[in-house]
Design a protein around this nucleic acid. Structure first.
Lengths: 180, 180
DNA sequence: GCCAACATGTAATGAGTTACATGATTAG
DNA sequence: CTAATCATGTAACTCATTACATGTTGGC
């Protein structure tokens, strides 16, 4: 089990909510944690295969009378152990890279107007995110059938997103003042 | 010029402050923008070579009477153009991945105590960052010989770091309350 | 009939990290 | 003398993205 591969932990964690196909996993990511996590098929399918070989997930082929065949995966006991081990570990993220800050840092090559545009573009994006968060909250509170604990944890991650967007907007506004 | 490669833009931007060796570039990153950007030699040297072939930077070999030989690179006109084109562009970052939030989202596999530990560990890290920022500010205000404009932009990026750490600490505290 | 959504997979490529290899100089 | 810092580079590897290939089903 390659330690640095984060996709595998995301997959194990998502299978912790119940058996799913690779296709389902991608949908799950996009619809619930898409605002702070991304995955793609070209990575999900090979890793599901590897996890199966390692005995961390179990494959069951489902061939319905109608519709294409699906591979439904579920967590094994070993898979749950691996998931929990990672959850308890406190390795920090290795790559710290903020492209926006890099652009600002090199901003002396731009005019003040162009720098303002860069900041305002970011502001717009954060405002759009804030609007999207309303929909996520609606999903959690009304459409999601999980336990209170699961909802609480989801809301905590959502709150992080909201606070970060609001903070970024505040930062843009005070930075624009500094450019005057 | 491969579009997705961010290291190349970081290198061009840093050479915008003056001619430097690959070694200098790494030091520069670590000492100034290390809190939001990272680079390593295994990537810097090959990319400097490629940028030279593409005519975006110019190499000058310096062999001092004492000390090892150095390759000092400087921005060409084409290099500056490429830098400015990237600065003006507004492609957003592709990979959005927050490992801490992923752990929280899967937190139903941990006890409340273990979840609290995860949050408190993050809180400690952010407090350490806040202390480190004091040193960065000192660097900017007292040791850095650049223009006022350069200092202002640097301080703006620093302020982002400070606000984000403070926000994260607030988020941890209110999340801990939700776990009670 | 056609497009969107369902469903799985591979191949090519690129980005970035880590380990390794080499050698000079300086400070303690 | 030895450790740290200066200085450059390559090789092996992993992670992730994108494009491609293939086929089904349901709705308009």
């Amino acid at each position: 089990m390659a330690k640095e591969n984060k996709t595998q932990y995301a997959i194990l964690g998502i299978l912790g909510f119940g058996p799913m196909s690779g296709y389902d996993i991608k949908k799950f990511v996009d619809m619930s944690i898409g605002f702070f996590w991304n995955e793609n098929f070209g990575h999900i399918y090979p890793i599901l295969n590897r996890l199966e070989k390692e005995g961390l997930v179990e494959k069951r082929e489902v061939t319905p009378r109608r519709g294409p065949r699906r591979n439904v995966y579920s967590l094994t006991a070993a898979g749950k152990d691996a998931l929990i081990a990672w959850l308890k570990s406190t390795e920090s993220e290795r790559a710290v890279r903020n492209e926006l800050l890099l652009r600002i840092f090199f901003g002396n090559h731009l005019s003040t107007g162009e720098l303002r545009e860069t900041l305002l573009h970011e502001r717009k994006q954060q405002e759009a995110r804030l609007e999207a968060f309303a929909e996520v909250r609606d999903n959690i509170e009304n459409k999601y059938p999980g336990s209170d604990e699961e909802k609480r944890n989801w809301l905590i991650t959502l709150e992080y997103g909201i606070m970060k967007s609001k903070m970024t907007i505040r930062w843009v506004d005070q930075s624009l003042k500094k450019l005057e």
